[in-house]
Amino acid sequence: MVISTAAMAGDPYLDALEAEAAKIGHVEVDDQQGPSTGEVGAGFAPNLSRDQFVSHMRSDHPGGNVLFVQLSPQERDKIYLDYYLKGASYQQVLTVMDTWLQSR
């Protein structure tokens, strides 16, 4: 898809916008250490939304779901965000949940 601004040349609003954007100045980016607060994770596979993940646990892993529902909301978040989305296997997720519950 071609993104252009040329077609609107002469639009005073666009002219003002361009002048305003120039006030930010040139941004120098350190290649080694990007300016984002973002963190890039390996093996990220966001193929299920949070709601779908809960349904998936309930329907496909009823055994694991017994453990999952006993976790606090923060722990469930960790399972979803830190483990599942970063490519952990079901067995690894199961181990983590079991360890947390045993340590209580």
Partner: peptide
């Protein structure tokens, strides 16, 4: 560890995380 980057970006000068 928190990378505080873009919120600091527009202060002018060289910009680094």
């Amino acid at each position: 560890i928190v990378l505080c980057g873009m919120a600091l970006l527009f202060g002018g000068g060289a910009v680094h995380a």
